[in-house]
Amino acid sequence: MSSGKSKANLRTTLSNALSLDANFYENALNTAKNRRLARTIVILAAVSNALGSAFILLINRVTLPILLLALLGSGISVVAGYYFWTFTIWQIGQWFKPNHAPYRHLLIPIGFAYAPQVLNFLTLIPLLGRPIQLTLGIWSLLAVIVAVRQGLDIGTPWSALICLVGWPLIQVAVGFLQVFEQELLR
């Protein structure tokens, strides 16, 4: 596949994911192409998160080892949060609809739902970083609710309930990471 076509596919996928298009999430089939696209979106979200953190850390003139440790932590936290949240959703989904969707099938639509997190580099805007981060987190939450509703064929209230179990844990973990980065600055 050509690089231009791959970029167009990624752009189209990001656009559909950001728009919370239920049909898009319904048709997010488990194919090698979609697995790559979902993984790419999660990696871009991790890189974007790290870039936002890097800017703040560079302004505060941290040492190179601390900068690298913080960037690694920021990136890993996004990827780990993705797998943890997907696992939580899958596990709770098994109680509602046993054996309905394998864990790996939820990785694709939930990976697509991480599309708002690709904009996480915007958190470097002074005084707006945390509100932007919360807005992107809520946007991702809404996208995951749509993805789970379509992926598990359940109603929106049940999908929201399932997704809300893991989301606060991820937000708390992100908050702890930010506190840790602040402590590194001291």
Rank of each mutant, 00 (worst) to 15 (best):
M1V: 10
S2H: 13
S3C: 04
G4D: 14
K7G: 07
A8Y: 05
R11V: 10
T12D: 15
T13V: 14
T13A: 11
N16H: 10
A17D: 03
L18W: 11
L18H: 06
L18P: 02
S19I: 08
A22I: 09
N23F: 02
N27V: 00
A28Y: 07
L29F: 14
L29N: 13
N30D: 07
K33R: 15
R35P: 00
R35A: 12
R36I: 01
R39W: 13
R39S: 12
T40M: 09
V42E: 10
A45G: 04
A45V: 03
A46P: 04
A46M: 07
S48M: 04
N49W: 08
A50I: 09
S53T: 14
A54C: 02
L58C: 08
R61H: 14
R61T: 10
V62T: 14
I66T: 09
I66M: 08
L68E: 03
L68Q: 04
L69N: 05
A70E: 07
A70I: 07
L71C: 06
L72G: 14
G73N: 10
S74I: 08
G75V: 10
G75D: 09
S77R: 12
V78Y: 06
A80S: 11
Y82I: 02
Y83A: 05
Y83C: 01
F84A: 13
W85G: 05
T88D: 13
I89P: 01
I89Y: 05
I89C: 12
W90H: 13
Q91A: 15
Q91F: 14
G93K: 00
G93A: 01
W95E: 12
F96A: 07
F96N: 03
P98H: 11
N99D: 14
H100F: 13
P102T: 11
Y103R: 09
Y103G: 03
R104S: 13
L106S: 09
I108E: 09
I108N: 08
P109A: 03
G111P: 11
G111F: 12
A113N: 10
A113D: 09
A113Y: 09
Y114K: 01
L119M: 13
L119R: 03
N120D: 02
L124T: 08
P126Q: 01
P126R: 01
L127C: 04
L127N: 06
P131M: 05
P131F: 02
I132V: 12
Q133F: 07
T135N: 02
T135D: 00
I138A: 15
I138V: 15
W139R: 04
W139K: 03
S140T: 12
S140H: 04
L142S: 06
A143F: 02
V144W: 05
V146D: 01
V146T: 13
V146N: 00
V148N: 04
V148P: 03
R149P: 05
Q150P: 05
I154S: 06
I154R: 05
G155H: 06
I162R: 01
C163R: 00
L164Y: 05
V165Y: 00
V165W: 00
L169K: 01
V172N: 02
V172I: 15
F176N: 10
V179Y: 12
V179M: 12
F180S: 02
E183F: 11
L184A: 05
L184P: 01
L184Q: 11
L185S: 06
R186A: 06
